[in-house]
Simulated assay, not measured.
Amino acid sequence: MAGQGPAPKDNRVRRNADSVDTITLAESPTDVPRLRGYARYSAATRAWWDTWANSPQAAVFAPTDWMRLSMLAPLVEQYHEEPKTALLAEIRLNEERLGATVADRQRLRMKIEGPKENKPKLAPVRDIADRRKSLED
């Protein structure tokens, strides 16, 4: 006898299915707000802002998300002037909420769609002679 109790039911329905859909991000936004005092910031902080402004996840940012980034800019500037662990931790925490890393985007159910390229598919090479012949052509 294998075990006690009733036999398991077949085709159980998952009752805790995800209630949130995945967001597919395809391109960067077109209407990015300007960072106040942009010219006063260092090149490193401006590069940080421009990276966020051109990121695919920025396409779904609400005004509050842009406000959070603008509030972070002075901390990023301060970190570049004098790196401190506490500053980096605060920056990382806030960037995490916006989907900075692959793990963050997975947690937020964000998926970045790669560029659609029409690359020709190569036929599989069967042996080295076929490979040499394909390189000669």
Rank of each mutant, 00 (worst) to 15 (best):
residue 10 D to N: 02
residue 16 N to R: 06
residue 22 T to I: 12
residue 15 R to S: 07
residue 33 P to D: 10
residue 15 R to H: 06
residue 14 R to Q: 14
residue 30 T to A: 06
residue 15 R to G: 14
residue 25 L to I: 11
residue 13 V to Y: 07
residue 12 R to M: 14
residue 12 R to E: 15
residue 22 T to N: 03
residue 7 A to Y: 02
residue 33 P to Q: 07
residue 9 K to R: 14
residue 33 P to L: 07
residue 26 A to P: 00
residue 24 T to K: 13
residue 12 R to W: 09
residue 19 S to W: 04
residue 28 S to C: 11
residue 22 T to R: 03
residue 10 D to M: 04
residue 29 P to G: 06
residue 10 D to R: 15
residue 27 E to C: 06
residue 8 P to C: 00
residue 15 R to L: 13
residue 35 L to W: 08
residue 12 R to K: 14
residue 30 T to L: 08
residue 13 V to G: 04
residue 22 T to H: 03
residue 14 R to E: 15
residue 7 A to L: 09
residue 18 D to V: 01
residue 21 D to Y: 01
residue 35 L to C: 10
residue 29 P to Q: 06
residue 15 R to C: 05
residue 23 I to D: 10
residue 35 L to A: 10
residue 27 E to K: 14
residue 35 L to F: 07
residue 9 K to I: 02
residue 14 R to Y: 12
residue 14 R to W: 10
residue 17 A to Y: 01
residue 11 N to C: 09
residue 27 E to W: 05
residue 21 D to W: 01
residue 29 P to H: 04
residue 20 V to Q: 15
residue 30 T to M: 05
residue 20 V to S: 09
residue 31 D to I: 06
residue 16 N to S: 09
residue 18 D to S: 14
residue 16 N to Q: 05
residue 13 V to I: 15
residue 25 L to W: 09
residue 26 A to W: 02
residue 36 R to H: 08
residue 31 D to N: 15
residue 36 R to Q: 11
residue 15 R to E: 11
residue 31 D to V: 08
residue 16 N to K: 05
residue 23 I to V: 15
residue 16 N to P: 00
residue 23 I to Y: 03
residue 8 P to I: 00
residue 21 D to Q: 09
residue 19 S to Y: 04
residue 9 K to D: 03
residue 31 D to L: 09
residue 8 P to D: 00
residue 27 E to A: 14
residue 21 D to R: 05
residue 17 A to D: 01
residue 28 S to I: 01
residue 33 P to E: 08
residue 11 N to Y: 13
residue 29 P to C: 07
residue 27 E to S: 15
